[in-house]
Design a protein around this nucleic acid. Structure first.
Lengths: 349, 349
DNA sequence: TGACAACTTTGGAACGTTCCAATTATCTAA
DNA sequence: TTAGATAATTGGAACGTTCCAAAGTTGTCA
């Protein structure tokens, strides 16, 4: 069983050429004669040669390996899974390969995986930072000249490119839509208050309320884990209020689904008895019942754009950090009650 | 900044020792004196040295890199995302790093990513094969002595270890449970008929019907894509039958959620008007409304076990292939109507 | 004092590739 | 014919690490 590694020298011997020629063939150099190329390729297939990128990489000290790293803070959230798929698409078609790691929101783990990736000589990194990541954590990475693109979350003070969605505009539009439908008591549900994303989305919510001359009630802002379970918990608390809200803008789609679940558990019909709007537009949003009205972020598209940005920086050698705010749009489906004519029933209940 | 790579020789010079000594320190060898070790470590920190695994790996020809590859056929399915998280856990704590790629059910893509991983010198591979993968596709990989563990799906004739769930027993138990609740017309919904998993689950369904002396109606087996959308499509077709089923065992949880959506679109209440059982027990199964009765497979646990199996083989040098069938169990929640006492209402509607 | 063991340290070769400068073979134009 | 250009090939050095055999240090005991 092929214990011995087949090297470029074995190929050279088999094809009757020098190792240098084999190397040129491997790099698809135009310098080599067609006949020789064919001979060499035949030998390669014959002997089952496997290219050793480690060795190649060692020699071309500056030109980096064809690896790009992607580190996400919660792979079980389908938003990030789709983001990773988007990244994989463009990265792969550019001949790179993806190194994916999950930090589960742990900065320690994040430090470990990034260190490990550096040892393997990644040529770039796409990072959705764990909660609590600081600029100092990325310092040595950027100092070494490895391009980094932050996605979803920014890290204050870090000199890296970033690609985040327009959180402020997103919730703002959501609230305006709900207000336009006649809702006065609109809640903001879910999310951890110690993240920048939370504050941006909350601020959009507040600003929209002011714009529409609606009062801002602190009790209507209920934070929780940004997950389905967190959504259930948040709506539970909201329904305990003396004056219940009639609509909610949720931190993300996972929370929104949880809110729908929680409503149903109370025999309330999401989309009819209570309006719900999510954020992200994950793939299940359109097939769920009721279909979720949400702020579309297109995670796959975001992954693709992040990857393109990173590749651009890798090729440019040294581009300076750019911060891209990806625009979002409201996708109106059933869960906000606007698409159906059943809202009249509301008063009957 | 820091364009020049810091090497072991720079460290040696700075610490006033030889490169060999530095190497020993890096490997935490007990041979080196405490004082020297401290000096070297100080220099490492001082100069911001990054270990070059490529070079190390080149030298220790036989001992492999600390990379394990994981290739899944559909990362957007949260089952696989969780599987990957499970793998990551044990792999990471064993000091390995994970290379993750998504094939999106394409054998071509799968061939590419596996080739790429080999070039990077993975020391093992966990593979959930794309549909249509053949033993020949894995041949050269196993010939080169790289341990491979197949998960979820087997590849007929391939000499690799595998870890699959007990599909037959799973659906069998599900059908028995439904029959025990008094259902006679039980459908089998979703899944692609050209996979081994589909047949195993279908066979369990058929065998259970026979066991319970219920007739097997071909019309009640409706295949579709194994996704939420596929589930909607399948239940649509099922509801068009002259004699409708009253319960369904679904190919997986995604299909089951789709079935619930489809039922609601027809004003039927899953868990009350129609019993639904899924397969996999993805994380949303317990928080959904109604909570999904399902066959628990524990994707994270499966990932962990697969990783452990792989590491065992890597360490053993050359273990022979073992096929593990992971047992499953029925988790009864709301969607099958057994956990609630609302079934009596059914007749009132 | 010398012999021997235990502990530390070390220079060079090797891993598989790419790059460079140099070489050979082939062709073209004067 | 020859000089020069063009095309194709090549040997050796280099990349950053680990391994090996060998060599320095100490310390102990007769």
């Amino acid at each position: 069983m092929g214990k011995e590694r087949v090297t470029v020298i074995d190929i050279a011997r088999a094809a009757g050429v020098s190792k240098s020629t084999v190397s040129l063939v491997l790099q698809a150099s135009p310098l080599v004669n067609e006949a020789t190329r064919a001979k060499v390729n035949a030998a390669i297939r014959e002997l089952g040669y496997v290219y050793n990128r480690g060795a190649a990489n060692l020699r071309q000290s500056n030109a980096k390996s064809k690896i790009i790293g992607i580190v996400v803070n919660d792979l079980t959230n389908s938003f990030f899974a789709e983001l990773a798929v988007g990244v994989d698409m463009v990265v792969q078609s550019a001949g790179y390969v993806q190194f994916l790691a999950n930090t589960g929101e742990s900065v320690d783990r994040q430090r470990e995986v990034i260190a490990s990736m550096r040892e393997h000589g990644i040529s770039g990194l796409i990072l959705s930072p764990a909660r609590g990541t600081e600029a100092a954590d990325l310092k040595s990475l950027v100092a070494s000249g490895i391009p980094v693109v932050n996605v979803v979350r920014q890290v204050a003070g870090a000199k890296v490119s970033s690609l985040v969605s327009d959180n402020h505009a997103g919730t703002r539009e959501a609230v305006r839509h709900l207000a336009g439908l006649g809702h006065h008591r609109i809640a903001f549900l879910g999310g951890f208050p110690d993240t920048a994303v939370f504050h941006e989305r909350l601020q959009g919510y507040r600003d929209a309320l002011s714009d529409m001359d609606l009062a801002v009630h602190g009790e209507l802002v209920i934070s929780s884990a940004p997950s389905r379970a967190g959504g259930v918990a948040a709506i539970e608390r909201a329904l305990l209020l003396r004056e219940r809200p009639t609509a909610a803008v949720c931190f993300n789609d996972a929370v929104a689904f949880g809110v729908c679940d929680g409503l149903r558990a109370h025999r309330l019909d999401p989309g009819e008895d209570f309006a719900v709007i999510g954020f992200d537009d994950v793939i299940e949003a359109q097939t769920a019942v009721p279909a979720l009205t949400t702020i579309s972020v297109d995670p796959q598209g975001m992954g693709r754009r992040a990857a393109q940005l990173l590749l651009k920086q890798i090729n440019a050698g040294k581009a300076d950090a750019e911060a891209i705010v990806s625009s979002v749009r409201l996708v109106v489906r059933q869960s906000c009650g606007a698409a159906t004519d059943k809202r009249e029933r509301l008063s009957l209940l």
